[in-house]
């Protein structure tokens, strides 16, 4: 059974890689299969980890008010399915509004506390940081200055409420430099991550065909 699975995996890997030659029926087969199995997988995943434990199991386990409160998300869920009938499709706006309201409420509070404040805290570093040696002091201070200047200038670059003239122009120019280095580094890192995946797939194929 495992041998069959390995050959299926190898066949699908080759089918996807065949796109490097040109678009062909093998690639299209694997591509459509990927969409189908991924959709099925996520349906099972969401129902196994979200809906069943949070709604069905909890409804059976809880008692009193806690039990009946679970009716609210269940009703919202069913309202979402009203989109199937054109005449009642407008009802699906209610659960959508509910989810949008939660996201907005969390963005106002948890996002500020969990993301914005920690990011600002991590930027407000001592610009002169004393190390054990002179070179360490210079390196640490230089890095802290770079982070502080980089963050401030990157923010200035995205500040469009005033025309970029004078000091703002200088700041945004420095911001571009940081942004370009940042994008380049991110790009290089992403490429290498993809290359390592490719090496993994090629190693797998070599093992399957007994060449390694």
């Amino acid at each position: 059974m495992n041998l069959l699975g390995t050959w299926i995996a190898a066949g699908l890997t080759v089918a996807i890689l065949s796109f490097l030659y040109r678009d062909n029926p093998f690639y299209k087969f694997a591509e459509h299969l990927f969409v189908g199995v991924s959709a099925g997988y996520w349906v099972i995943y969401i129902w196994a980890f979200d809906v069943k434990p949070m709604l069905i199991d909890e409804f059976l386990r809880q008692a009193g008010v806690e039990k009946w409160l679970l009716i609210i998300p269940a009703v919202f869920g069913v309202m979402m399915l009203m989109r199937w009938v054109p005449r009642t499709a407008w009802i699906s706006r209610w659960p959508i509004s509910f989810t949008v309201g939660i996201a907005a409420g969390l963005a106002l509070t948890a996002q500020v506390q969990g993301y914005i404040i920690p990011q600002i805290q991590a930027t407000l570093l001592p610009l002169v940081s004393i190390g054990k040696t002179t070179s360490e002091t210079i390196a640490r201070s230089f890095n802290n200055i770079m982070i502080f200047v980089g963050v401030v200038c990157a923010l200035l670059f995205f500040y469009f409420s005033r025309e970029h003239k004078g000091a703002l122009k200088v700041g945004s120019k420095v911001g571009i430099i940081f942004l370009m280095i940042g994008f380049g580094a991110s790009f290089g890192y992403t490429v290498m991550a993809r290359i390592s995946l490719l090496i993994g797939r090629l190693t797998f194929l070599l093992q399957v065909f007994g060449l390694r």
Binding site: I120, M146, C153, A185
Partner: peptide, 16 residues
């Protein structure tokens, strides 16, 4: 360092 600074600048802007 530079990538972190650029990313942080973008993220703070996005979150705000």
């Amino acid at each position: 360092i530079p990538q972190l600074a650029a990313k942080r600048g973008i993220q703070i802007g996005v979150y705000l």
